[in-house]
Design a protein around this nucleic acid. Structure first.
Length: 480
RNA sequence: GGUCCCAUCGUCUAGCCCGGUCUAGGACAUCGCCUUUUCACGGCGGUAACUGGGGUUCGAAUCCCCAUGGGACUACCA
């Protein structure tokens, strides 16, 4: 039987980093074993679910390159529909079947009554295996009569009083004691099904073979195991991966900063870098490699190398990973991106393609994010101002520096466009032979005279990229 | 409170299942050096961890128990 995995987000907000990570693990596993990756939309919470969020999440997934094989937009008639809100009749049919077999029952207990029972139990410190007031099979006729009269009951599943065991691919053997959960609602009085129930019905009907999801579902699994047993269906293989947490070791949430994928997309983080970083937060490469594309990981990927403890989501290493992926891009690719990122009207757009490629070649050695390129270029190439830093003052105070400054000012006045590397060599030779300057004062003096700064990239790369008009303005300011 | 899960450098982790090869390896960060007559990139090196206590064993990071700490779940949310 071929492997089928799924990612089942709730469209109640943007795609979360943790969600992206589980989606990625599922995708990786499907690709690794030649299986099918299904996207299912868990929108039974009508209040919070919005179709626009579904679209937004799909966009984020697409941006990451996590493409599903089946889903609302790629239905397989055998398994669809893929939105739980469109499967309501299916859930009801199976629930009625459970009632028929006396594995579930109608329950008219109201929310307030339930609260009261719970409060009472808590006060007495007793731990009870809750069973609805309507648990007695003999009460079914009465229940039916109430329904006929227009009352709306919930449907409650009869939780068997026995221990369940799970052999989880990540956590190993997990045993759930017999009294862990009481009878639980599978269909709300509104007629809408509850997560733990539709999850099972769907995974069963969609023939999901492996469930890779967050550890926060580990305790839910016992309810699902009960339902699988009631349906006489072999449960899928479970792999509960550890959670992502913040610096304070709490579950990752908005107060930890940017936790939505789209924020990173907007900031022009690289999707490959994000996948790379996220993969490593809880999974390790057999050869301890740490920079890779997700396609490179596919042949290595399996359920065996997950770590069992939660991982702190920390941007510092992400930054490094992004830098590594950035440097793997060709200059043409970087230019193409900068063309869209840098605002219209910026001097960058006026330059020739060759100039742009040389520019990114220089810049990519200095930054981890593509968004850092423009500010850096503004500062190093297009900045006409001269800021009197201590470092610059120091260089300017050297005996020979003023000579170079005035020489360069006179020289740049003679040319237009860009100064070539050869031109730079001529200036340097002149300063050496005619002005009698050498060593550090020569090179630093030249740098100061040309850039108005004490440090920066190699002059032979930087000067041919700097418009002479800018050099002239700097020279004028230095002379003043 | 109850149930379940987890515990190796500051962080991500390797090693753990199948005890000795671990004076615990890698990566990020940090510090130093080299390279670059500057900066960055790159290269080399340093600092830095088996939560504690018992047990089993000739021998424990590795197996068992307890403690402590952290987390998750405990809904007619997902």
């Amino acid at each position: 039987m071929s492997v089928r995995v799924r990612f089942a987000p709730s469209p109640t907000g943007y795609l979360h980093i943790g969600g992206a990570r589980t989606a990625l693990y599922n995708w990786l596993y499907a690709r690794a074993v030649g299986g099918t990756f299904v996207l299912r939309i868990e929108d039974t919470d009508l209040e919070r679910s919005k179709r626009e969020y579904e679209e937004l999440q799909k966009e984020d997934l697409k941006w990451l390159g996590i493409i599903h094989d089946e889903g609302p937009d790629k239905p397989n008639p055998k398994y669809g529909p893929y939105r739980q809100s469109e499967r309501l009749d299916i859930y009801m049919k199976y629930a009625l079947d459970l009632i028929e077999k006396d594995l579930a029952y109608y329950d008219f207990t109201t929310g307030e009554e339930l609260e009261a029972i719970k409060a009472e139990n808590e006060a007495e410190g007793v731990h009870t295996h809750y069973q609805g007031k309507w648990k007695n099979p003999g009460m079914k006729t009465e229940a039916l009569a109430k329904i006929a009269a227009g009352e709306k009951p919930a449907i409650r599943f009869r939780a068997p009083m026995k221990a369940f065991a799970l052999n989880d691919k990540v956590k190993g053997e997990v045993v759930y004691p017999a009294d862990m959960v009481g009878d639980f609602v599978i269909i709300r009085s509104s007629g809408l099904p509850v997560y733990n129930y539709c999850c099972v019905v769907d995974d069963m009907l969609m023939e999901i073979t492996h469930v890779i999801r967050g550890e926060d579902h580990l305790n839910n699994t016992v309810r699902q195991l009960m339902l699988y047993e009631a349906f006489k269906y072999t449960p899928p293989v479970f792999a509960h991966v550890s959670l992502l947490i913040g610096q304070d070791r709490q579950k990752l949430s908005k107060r930890h900063g940017a936790t939505s994928v789209h924020l990173y997309k907007d900031e022009h983080y690289m999707p490959e870098a994000m996948c790379n970083y996220l993969t490593l937060l809880g999974w390790s490469h057999p050869e301890e490699k740490d920079i890779f594309t997700k396609e490179e990981i596919v042949p290595m990927f399996g359920l065996e190398r997950f770590s069992s403890h939660s991982a702190i989501y920390d941007l510092v290493k992400f930054k490094y990973v992004n830098g590594q992926h950035l440097r793997k891009l060709t200059n043409a690719e970087l230019v193409a991106q900068l063309n869209t990122i840098i605002p219209a009207g910026h001097a960058f757009h006026a330059q020739a393609t060759a100039w742009k490629e040389q520019c990114v070649e220089l810049l990519k050695q200095k930054v981890d994010f593509i968004t850092e390129m423009q500010p850096m270029m503004d500062d190093m190439i297009f900045d006409e101002n001269v800021e009197m830093t201590d470092e610059l003052k120091d260089i300017l105070s050297w005996e020979t520096t003023p000579k170079i400054v005035s020489y360069i000012a006179a020289e740049v006045a003679k040319i237009e466009g860009f100064a070539s590397e050869a031109q730079l060599n001529v200036w340097s030779e002149h300063a050496k032979k005619e002005l009698g300057i050498k060593g550090k004062p020569l090179f630093m003096g030249l740098r100061a005279a040309l850039t108005g700064k004490g440090h920066g990239p190699d002059l032979k790369f930087l000067i041919p990229l700097t418009p002479v008009s800018v050099l002239k303005k700097r020279a004028a300011k230095l002379g003043a």
